[in-house]
Each structure stands twice: as C-alpha cells, then as structure tokens.
C-alpha cells in the first residue's frame, strides 16, 4: 500500500532521516513513534510531498510518487495545529478537498454531510473553526481529510494539544473511525501510550533511524535495543556480564544473582536487563525465590486502578513495581521484590 524505501533527508549538512524503510499494508494503522526531533515529522511530510527527499523513493499503491506534488497524491492529512482554514466555515473546510478532487456540486454537498455525521458533528457545519473547542477542531480536521476517500491518512500528532481525559477518549474514537472507514493510516506521535493502544504496527524512530518495526506487543515485550526498551514503557534496569551456572545463564549485579530466561546466550557478554513494573511482585518478607531483591520504598504513587511503587535497591539503583491500589506498605518500609526469570528482557 505505502512503501517508504531508503528515505533520506538532509537539511544542509544536518541529517534529519537516514535510510528509513518500512511498508504499510492495506487498512493497517501504523504509528511512527519517537522523541521530538527524531525525524518522524520529516518522514510524514515527505510522504505527503511537502518535503523533498534527499534520497530514496516513496511508493503509494505501487506507483512511485516521489516526484509528484502533494496535490497529485490523493493523501489525507490532519495536522497538530488542525490547520483548519479560519476564514471558512466547517462545511466549507470539508468541501475544499472535495472540490479540489473534482467532485460535482451535488456530491460535495452529500459527502460534506456524511463526513459531519461520521465525526458526530452534524450540527456544526456553519460554525467557523474559531468557535469550536480543541477536540471538535480535531474532529473537523479528520472529517476534512477523510471526505474525499484518500488512499492513506496521515496524522501528525493530532492529539498533542488535548488534555489527558479528552486524549484518551479521542484515541478510542479515532480507532473506531479508522475501522469504520477502513482507511490505511500512518500516525505520528511522541506519546508511547498513543502508539501502543492504537496501532497494528509501530515504527520506533530515533536520530533519524528506525530502531524497531514491530507490533505494539513485541515493541513492549521484546524491544530490539536499549533505546526502545527505555523509550517505550517503564522498567527497572540492571547491567552486568553473562556467565553460566549449571547450564543456566545468569548475571551478577553487585553480588546479586539474576537468572536469565534464555540459556543460549554466550558467556562474557555485557548486557542490559529490563524488567517491566507489572512483572515485579512485592512482599514485606523474603520468599527465597530466585531473582529476589531487597529494597526500601521511596514513593508510592496511586494511579487510580493500581499503585506504582518506587524502591531503592541495595546497590543504589531504583526499581519500579505495580501493586494493588492500596498496598499494605508505607514509604521507608523494607520490602522484597522479585520477578520470574522468563520476564527478564535481555539486550
């Protein structure tokens, strides 16, 4: 459907994106995830034709569109700033793309109404964008970019300006619309929760290079490198060198033994180990299980349905664990944290 092939973009001497390749299949929802300045917006703009690649090709439905101007690509795009035309009504905004795509006056009118229905705003057609709330503006922006049935929908951080509650609501809503219309979607964000909760596939970008291209589950559970592990999700980190004991691979971290999930790993390798907070179990007394650490609670943050507990381990490092909502533990308590070997991520 969409194929980005060794895309490279330099701004003068400065490299924004280097040798980036990925594909999106028909109907997929793919997210470009990365910190700001990682090159994700440049990539999106290049796909739209708003940025000229220094090297590489972009193919849409098998056609090379690299040299086509944006207006010849049949792409839909929603901007972070919404980019709604302030001098036009909502209806005129949606009609704009339809007219440019050569729809007849009658079709334009019909599709504008359909689009307004689609985004649950049938009564707002005569408003100017300035009279709408941030969330409503984003919905109109989406309606405008979907009205003429583009081959692909590009979303440039559309939820960034919204507050937390609205943002979570919009995620589900956006997914529903995307499935309803069944439009291939490329979504750009720096927010890992957006990426993990909405996508079929995530492309993690850093410093202009793809770090991992995978399903959200795999990105979270089997990150390809330390950057992905640290950027996506929280974790407790250990470092050390691999040895084998009785055929089992282990790492010694400050005299403490950590058993690893996979024994096929070579000796003497320096590795980083990551454990997700939900994989760590906490108790006030030691159980004698493997991979058990002693620590002192430094903070308990209530997250609503659960609590996130921070503890300082004996080696001075910090561990994060999820517990029930009101754990029978206080700050400064001595606790024991343990995690099963098979849940350790080794990188």
């Amino acid at each position: 459907m969409l194929e980005v092939d060794t895309f490279t973009k330099y701004y003068g001497e400065l490299c924004a994106v280097e040798d980036l390749s990925f594909r999106i299949e028909e109907g997929e929802f793919v997210t470009l995830l990365g910190p700001s300045g990682c090159g994700k917006s440049t990539t999106l703009h290049a796909i739209a034709g708003l940025v000229e690649p220094t090297d590489g090709r972009i193919r849409l439905r098998g056609t090379d569109v690299t040299d086509l101007p944006p207006e010849k690509r049949n792409i839909g795009m929603a901007f972070q700033s919404t980019a709604l035309f302030p001098h036009m009504t909502v209806r005129e905004n949606i009609a704009y793309g339809l007219k440019m795509h050569g729809y007849s006056a009658a079709d334009v009118e019909e599709r504008v109404e359909e689009s307004l229905e689609l985004v649950d705003m049938p009564d707002h057609g005569d408003h100017k964008p300035g009279e709408l709330s941030g969330g409503q503006q984003q919905r109109v922006s989406l309606a405008r970019s979907l009205a003429y049935e583009p081959d692909i929908l590009l979303l440039d951080e559309p939820l960034t300006g919204l507050d937390r509650v609205l943002r979570e609501e919009m995620r589900g809503w956006l997914n529903r619309i995307q499935r309803e219309v069944n439009v291939t979607t490329l979504y750009v964000t720096h927010d890992q929760e957006d990426a993990l909760s909405m996508s079929d596939k995530v492309v993690v970008l850093n410093d202009g290079q793809a770090q991992q291209i995978d399903s959200p589950e795999r990105i979270y559970e089997s990150p390809a490198n330390p950057f992905v592990a640290e950027f996506v999700g929280k974790s407790t980190q250990f470092n050390g060198t691999v040895t084998h004991e009785n055929g089992q691979a282990v790492v010694y971290n400050d005299e403490k033994r950590i058993a690893l999930p996979d024994s096929s790993i070579d000796d003497d390798q320096s590795v980083s180990l990551y454990v997700r907070p939900e994989d760590i179990e906490v108790s006030p007394k030691p159980t004698g299980a493997e991979n058990e650490f002693r620590g002192i609670v430094t903070d308990i943050a209530n997250l609503g349905n659960r609590a996130e507990l921070s503890a300082t381990l004996e080696d001075g490092s910090t561990a994060l664990a999820h517990t029930t909502r009101f754990p029978d533990i206080d700050v400064d308590d001595d606790i024991f944290l343990r995690f099963p070997a098979e849940r350790v991520i080794v990188l």
Partner: peptide, 23 residues
C-alpha cells in the same frame, strides 16, 4: 501566519496558485 494552512491546502489537492487564491 501558520504555514500548515498552505500545507493542508496542498494535501487537500490544491495547486500553489489555487492555494494562494483561496487560502
């Protein structure tokens, strides 16, 4: 002036001259 408005117009299918006329 927010230049995303011009980008949006182009992606929506308008050429540069049309973009200037209407946006």
């Amino acid at each position: 002036y927010d230049r995303d408005l011009e980008r949006a117009s182009r992606v929506l299918g308008a050429d540069p001259v049309t973009t200037f006329r209407h946006v």
